[in-house]
Amino acid sequence: MATVELRFSALPEHVRTARLVAAAVARRAGVDESVLDEVRLAVGEACSRAVGLHRLTGADGAVRVALIEEEKRFLIEVEDEAGGPRSGSDGGSGSAAGGDSDGDDELGLAVITGLVEDVEVGKGAEGALIRMSWPVSTASIGV
C-alpha cells in the first residue's frame, strides 16, 4: 500500500491540494528541499493532465495519486480513469484548461519530462498512469 494515497474528483480545484500533499509527504520522506519545487510542479502537471483527459473524454471518475516511500527513492503515481491510454504523441490539441487549444497537454508533458529524470508514461487500469521518482536523502529522518 502507498504511504499516502489521495483520490479526488477530476476537477481543477483539487489539483492544488494534490500538489500540497505531495510536497508535504515528499519532504517528510527525505526528498531534498531543493527538489521539492520540482515535485510540486511535476505532480501538479500530472494531475492537470489527468483532469484535462477526463474533461476531454467526458469520463466520470477520479484521479488517484499514490505517494510511496521506499528505502532510496520516493515514488509518485498519478492515474486517471479517463479511459486512456494517451501518450506524448497523441496530437495534443486537447487543453488541460478547457478548450483554448493552447497545447497545454504537450506543454505539461514537456515540463514533466524536463523536470523529472525518472518518469514513465504508461497505461493504468482505466486510463493513463504516470510514474515518477526522486532520490531520498539517506541522512533524512522522517519524524
Binding site: 502537471e45 497545447g103 497545454d104 505539461g108
Partner: peptide
C-alpha cells in the same frame, strides 16, 4: 508563487 503549463498555455495564447 506558482506557474504550470496551463499558465504557460494561457500566456502563449
Amino acid at each position: 508563487d506558482f506557474l504550470d503549463s496551463t499558465g504557460l498555455g494561457v500566456l502563449v495564447g
